[in-house]
């Protein structure tokens, strides 16, 4: 998959279609986000890891709104870009999508609902993909058990804000998590459960299921459980899925009855 992809993006650069390609680069035994601007670097482009490239793209566009860039994106990256565009955080006209599908291992790791973007330039979409974990264990808990579960989990929180920082959809410059009216400053762990409820709620109708928040959590709080359940709820209540079409509005924000 990588050689074909390298040819494809090399062509985008050579032809002058884009000024750079945002993708992952193998360097010093690790993989990092990188903006490829020359064809001769493309040999280091890899697909072996996952980083929140959508937020990087948004940062690059803010730096230079006129620049046209390509992005090698997975399903979650594409969904995040679409959600960002809905909220005027990014200009899709200046982005060339270079879609790649996730393999089974990666899709499993993220328990992804949709491990591929709309169009792919290489590889194959997983067919008939259904995520294995349906969070049945959690759903079978009683209300009381759920509270005990979350209390135990959230007591570990050390307020790094990593879940927010790593989230491609958390773009507010003033974050309610830092508002002392809701969450007392400087206390560890933050009071149960407001910090995490605020974050979960703010992502309702926004979360694209990339799993970066859970990956970034130093103490292993299963944040995707909440996100996953809320995504199910949003689908159940409003029939809405995030990251599908830029024309779909987040139903929580619309004024229509449902």
């Amino acid at each position: 998959m990588e050689p074909e992809l390298r040819d494809y993006v090399g062509e985008l650069l050579d032809s002058g279609t884009v000024a750079g390609v945002l993708a992952l680069k193998d360097e010093l035994g690790a993989v990092k986000p990188y903006l490829f601007t020359k064809n001769n670097e493309i040999g280091d482009l890899v697909l072996t890891s996952k980083y929140p490239l959508a937020s990087v793209m948004s940062m690059l566009q803010k730096e230079d709104p006129s620049i046209k860039l390509a992005i090698v994106c997975r399903g979650c990256d594409e969904r995040a870009l679409i959600e960002l565009a809905k909220r005027n955080q990014i200009n899709l006209d200046n982005i060339v999508f270079v879609g790649i599908p996730c393999d089974e291992e990666m899709a499993d790791k993220c328990n992804c609902l949709q491990p591929y973007p709309k169009e792919i330039v290489t590889g194959e979409k997983l067919s008939n993909w259904v995520p294995k974990n349906n969070y049945e264990d959690f759903k079978n808990m009683s209300t009381e058990e759920k509270l005990i579960f979350w209390k135990g989990q959230l007591e570990k929180c050390n307020k790094c804000y990593g879940c927010r920082n790593a989230c491609p959809l958390c773009f507010c410059s003033d974050c309610e998590l830092e508002n002392a009216l809701w969450v007392k400053h400087g206390r560890l762990p933050p009071e149960f459960p407001i910090y995490h409820v605020i974050r979960a709620f703010h992502l309702a109708g926004k979360c694209v299921g990339c799993g970066e928040c859970e990956n970034a959590c130093p103490v292993g709080i299963p944040l995707m459980t909440l996100n996953h359940l809320l995504r199910e709820d949003i689908k159940d209540l409003f029939g809405y899925m995030t990251g599908q079409d830029i024309e779909d509005e987040n139903p929580i924000n619309t004024k229509e009855e449902y």
Binding site: G29, A30, V31, K32, P33, S49, K50, Y51, V56, M59, L60, E63, N158, K159, C160, Y161, G162, N165, A166, N215, A216, C217, P218
Partner: peptide, 30 residues
Amino acid sequence: YIQVINGVAKGVMPCKEDPVSEGKLCIKGW
């Protein structure tokens, strides 16, 4: 990782391959 755009450091990106942090950081690091 330190994210650098045109010579200016813009922020931190955790490194998922790092054996100590494993792509996670504390508030000071971020």
